[in-house]
């Protein structure tokens, strides 16, 4: 795998990283902690989008699942005072149920139909939410008390746990037969089919996994943010963010979405402070630059251009 770092120092690095991640909230101030939580949340969205992308399906409606997760946990709290952690889980499960429905309807079709349906799905949910304000709170949104009484450090650990779960799931997929099935379907559905793979089943499965984590992220967001409105959680912004970050970092990898998210979020945060309006243009610019100049994302850039430089140097010296 990574020959640049030997096995021993790799383990040391990982241990160091884990220790750092654990003690991070103790040393950081509130602003950076908030930024980190936002980044972790985005990482979950990016990684779970990438799980589905491994089967060759491009979802442009992750916001629908995100919003369902957010509203499910917020409304369940409002109605029956369900504890936030359970509410977040309920959001994830509800998102899975919706994903199964949409998946079986559209994932048997090939090409762009699924992408179109997902956009329509997210947008339709936003409209429905505005149409039945008695149940959903309408345009006024829903508010919940702060998560863990506003304790950001606990919130940090919760999102860290979800993120760890996502990364572990992706890792398990990569190690298992599932990855081959996903790759086969992405490369050529017919060939996958004659190898004994039922493409629809695996695509729906990937969509379910993706939906679960996106729903969890939505649930977390609603409690952490304490306030959600339809046009924010069901908005196209969320869906686009879900796909820009992994494409920027590098598709079909564990690290790609993670690195892509960090960079996109840092750029966005920097622009948010310096450019008061329209900082979201960063998403568009990043997408254009990546598609034109580095189709394999940052990971591809590293593997093709930067790593060889290092290897050459070290072999000379």
């Amino acid at each position: 795998m990574n020959r640049l770092i030997s096995g021993k120092s790799f383990i040391v690095l990982i241990v160091l990283a884990v220790v750092l991640i654990f003690f991070y909230p103790r040393v950081m101030d509130s602003y950076f902690l908030h930024l980190t939580i936002a980044i972790f949340l985005a990482m979950i969205l990016a990684s779970s989008w990438d799980i589905l992308a491994r089967t060759g399906q491009v979802s442009v409606g992750q916001a629908g699942l995100f919003g369902i997760g957010a509203y499910a946990s917020a409304l369940l709290y409002q109605w029956i005072h369900l504890p936030p952690v359970l509410g977040i889980l309920a959001g994830g499960i509800l998102a899975v149920i919706l994903a199964v429905g949409i998946g079986y309807l559209t994932l048997r079709l090939r090409g762009i139909y699924f992408s179109i349906t997902t956009i329509a799905f997210a947008e339709a949910l936003a409209v429905i939410w505005l149409m039945i304000p008695d149940i959903t709170g309408g345009a006024m949104g829903v508010s919940t008390p702060p998560l863990f009484g506003g304790n950001r450090i606990l919130a940090y650990y919760l999102i860290l746990a979800i993120l760890a779960l996502v990364i572990m799931t992706v890792w398990l997929i990569e190690k298992s037969r599932l990855n081959f099935a996903f790759t086969a379907i992405r490369q050529n559905e017919d060939v996958a089919n004659v190898m004994g793979i039922n493409p629809t089943r695996y695509k729906v499965l990937a969509f379910m996994i993706s939906a679960f984590f996106t729903g969890l992220a939505g649930g977390f967001y609603s409690h952490y943010n304490t306030y959600i409105i339809p046009y924010e959680v069901f908005g196209l912004n969320v869906s686009i963010a879900c796909l820009v970050m992994p494409i920027f970092g590098g598709l079909y990898t564990i690290l790609g979405p993670v690195i892509g998210t960090i960079l996109v979020k840092v750029i966005e945060e920097f622009l948010r402070v310096t450019v008061p309006y329209g900082h979201q243009i960063a998403y568009g610019l990043i997408l254009v630059v990546v598609v034109l100049f580095m189709p394999d994302g940052l990971i591809g850039l590293w593997k093709k251009r930067i790593k060889p430089l290092f290897l050459k140097k070290s072999s000379v010296g």
Binding site: T183, Q187, N188, D190, N193, V194, G196, I197, N198
Partner: peptide, 21 residues
């Protein structure tokens, strides 16, 4: 039957253009 069920019955195909990974 679906294609993946037919493979299980013992009908296999070498696709045109090989289509390896």
């Amino acid at each position: 039957l679906r294609a993946d069920e037919i493979v299980r019955l013992g009908v296999s195909m070498v696709p045109e253009g090989r289509e390896l990974f």
